[in-house]
Design a protein around this nucleic acid. Structure first.
Length: 565
RNA sequence: GCGCCCGUAGCUCAGCUGGAUAGAGCAUCGGCCUUCUAAGCCGAGGGUCCCAGGUUCGAGUCCUGGCGGGCGUGCCA
């Protein structure tokens, strides 16, 4: 590839100046007047060589000589070397995209290694809320990015199916159940008030009839717990399926106990000599590993804190062969990061294990005001309600378009807008529009199949707008790699929006009222085929980019005409 | 108090290992449907990159100290 040839030539030239480990950038400048590629290498070397950057640039330029595909090199500004490429070299990128097709953008950074992405991990105490939605979109997109980068990805969902919260849920169900039988038993103060608790109680009545009337036994409560967990898990599963998110494995906390892993972990931690007793509780010296203070493992009442199963759980991840683990969590859990890592370090796992992606919370705004439109959950907006309102594609894109660590204000007005203001539709429509070109070409009997496009003379793509589109397409693999290594799907959103904008601009430039000579489907077969090749490459990139985000790329857009005359 | 995150255009936000005149969308204003093409395009205005120092050829980006906001700081999860 041309960028690599230029990089190599630059390395060779800097070596001749005595610098063998030069670090520099070679990328597309913002201004087209600054060429197709630019490097800062002369400035980067200036202090080491104790010479003015422009002088170094001149010498490098002299040493570079001819590079196939480079038309000319200019020295500009403080000492940039700007490369201007020939049309053939630019056009080559179109063929690279077409040849790779559905795989364009992939890399092999992962080299087939395994990585686990744990996300959502909602407890079965109610329907999924918007924070879970952001996490579902984020975790799934990160998983997809890693899969595109050569990793073997395992998606895992952990849930706490025992513990205090579940007990409160079971008691709430019991109260609702007794209420359905006409008894006056109030939902506990610390119980769950949402409407869905009533639905579970109704399910209980359905299944067991009056079997638990006045039954306050532990056995009855356990029955209720199990049923509640099953129903709520199934409900969450429905919500996730509607959101197009699927997991490879579900790990219940109770399994850590039933398989003796919690006890095993206590034993292992005791064996390190880093535990001690104080105030009737068992503590671990997590402060030895950077935690702010030591943590309780086993409470004075003999029960473990959540810290212990957390450590046990992460040990299973390691033992199951995952030396690379990414946990996606809300930033309200950030205090667990240091302590879990400390617990794992005590057991000789490496310091940064596991990796965390923490995201800020989500609010929904309509007309600039925060809204909560939940009917079922009472206190919060559910993911299912949002997806029903705006659709899975829009919801996903909106959850992904901000950096995880930034607060997300979900603009419902914009999400519901089916016009050009909505970035999701803008990208999808650009894709659909290109598909339309292929259909029209087919209708006219023009060959725009893969073989015809492979023979296209892309050197004919000489218009500045066309060149811009081509160069933008060529940047997709770089964006994908950056998004994957940075766990930053929002970069793909930015990229897609920019790409769709350029594609639309190109497409529109041939509008009959502007310059029909720039139309894609011109009479000249060679030019037409070259432009169809560009259309095909752009369609591929938009489709692949949306796929990485888990968003559909429709061949045609169906306009929802509700409200139109 | 301490820890983590955030502070960039009227609004929502991008900005790669520090690079050229800080970008996008929305909003505002002006223009373009005789069509392969308007869920679109062309153009205009809009900035104390929170503040103050520092590092250097060069800082929105790195360092120090403030200010403002969010989250956490539990033998809750």
């Amino acid at each position: 590839m041309l960028t690599e040839r230029i990089s190599d030539a630059l390395r060779e030239a800097t070596a001749a100046l005595g610098v063998h480990d030069a670090r520099f950038r070679l990328d597309r400048p913002r201004e087209t007047g600054h060429g197709d590629l630019a490097t800062n290498v002369a400035m980067a070397l200036a202090s080491r060589l104790r010479r003015p950057p422009r002088e170094i640039a001149q010498e490098l330029k002299n040493r570079l000589g001819g590079i196939d595909g480079v038309e000319r090199i200019e020295i500009a500004g403080p000492g940039f070397l700007n490369f201007f490429l020939g049309a053939a070299a630019v056009g080559d990128a179109v063929h690279r995209v077409l040849a790779a097709a559905g795989d364009f953008g992939r890399n092999d950074d992962g080299q087939g290694r395994s990585v686990m992405v744990e996300f959502v991990s909602a407890n079965p105490t109610g329907p999924l809320h918007l924070g879970h939605g952001r996490q579902a979109a984020l975790g799934d997109a990160i998983a997809r990015l890693l899969a595109w980068s050569g990793w073997r990805v395992h998606r895992e969902f952990y849930f706490n199916d025992a513990g205090g919260q579940i007990l409160r849920l079971a008691r709430s169900v019991r109260a609702r159940y007794q209420q359905l039988l006409g008894h006056d038993e109030p939902v506990p103060e610390d119980g769950y008030q949402g409407e869905y608790v009533l639905e579970i109680a109704a399910g209980l009545l359905d299944r067991f009839g009056r079997g638990f009337e006045h039954d306050l036994s532990a056995g009855a409560l356990e029955e209720m717990r199990q049923l509640a967990v099953r129903i709520l898990r199934a409900g969450q599963e429905e919500d996730l399926a509607a959101f197009n998110v699927h997991f490879d494995e579900y790990y219940p906390e109770t399994r850590l106990y039933s398989e003796g892993r919690v006890k095993e972990t206590i034993r292992a931690l005791d064996g390190t000599g880093l535990t001690y007793r104080k105030d009737g509780a068992a503590w671990l010296r997590t402060s030895r590993f950077g935690d702010q203070k030591d943590r309780v493992m086993v409470k004075s009442d003999g029960s473990p804190t959540y810290f212990l199963p957390d450590v046990a759980y992460h040990m299973t991840k390691w033992e199951r062969g995952f030396q690379h683990v990414i946990n996606v969590q809300g930033s309200d859990h950030h205090s667990t990061v240091d302590r879990v890592r400390a617990g794992l370090q005590a057991l000789d796992r490496p310091p940064g294990y596991p990796e965390y992606v923490l995201h800020q919370m989500v609010t929904v705004e309509r007309g600039g005001q925060e809204v909560r439109f939940s009917k079922r959950a009472g206190s919060y907006t559910t993911l299912a309600e949002l997806v029903a309102e705006v659709g899975a594609d829009v919801a996903r894109y909106f959850f992904l378009m901000r950096r995880p660590e930034a607060h997300l204000a979900f603009d419902l007005d914009l999400a519901l807008d089916q016009s050009d203001r909505n970035p999701v539709y803008k990208v999808q429509y650009a894709h659909a529009r290109l598909c339309r070109l292929f259909k029209l070409a087919g209708d006219r009997g023009w060959d725009a199949g893969p073989e015809a496009l492979a023979d296209a003379d892309t050197e004919l793509l000489a218009d500045p707008v066309e060149r811009e589109v081509v160069k933008q397409l060529a940047e997709f693999p770089g964006f994908l790699r950056r998004a994957a290594t940075g766990r930053a799907p929002h970069l793909i959103c930015d990229y897609l929006e920019k790409t769709a904008g350029l594609v639309n601009s190109w497409y529109q430039s041939g509008h009959p009222t502007r310059d029909p000579a720039l139309s894609t489907l011109v009479a000249d077969p060679a030019l037409r085929t070259a432009r169809m090749a560009l259309a095909g490459a752009a369609r591929t990139v938009l489709k692949n980019g949306l796929a990485v985000l888990g968003i559909n790329a429709p061949d045609r857009m169906v306009r929802d005409v509700a409200g139109s005359p």
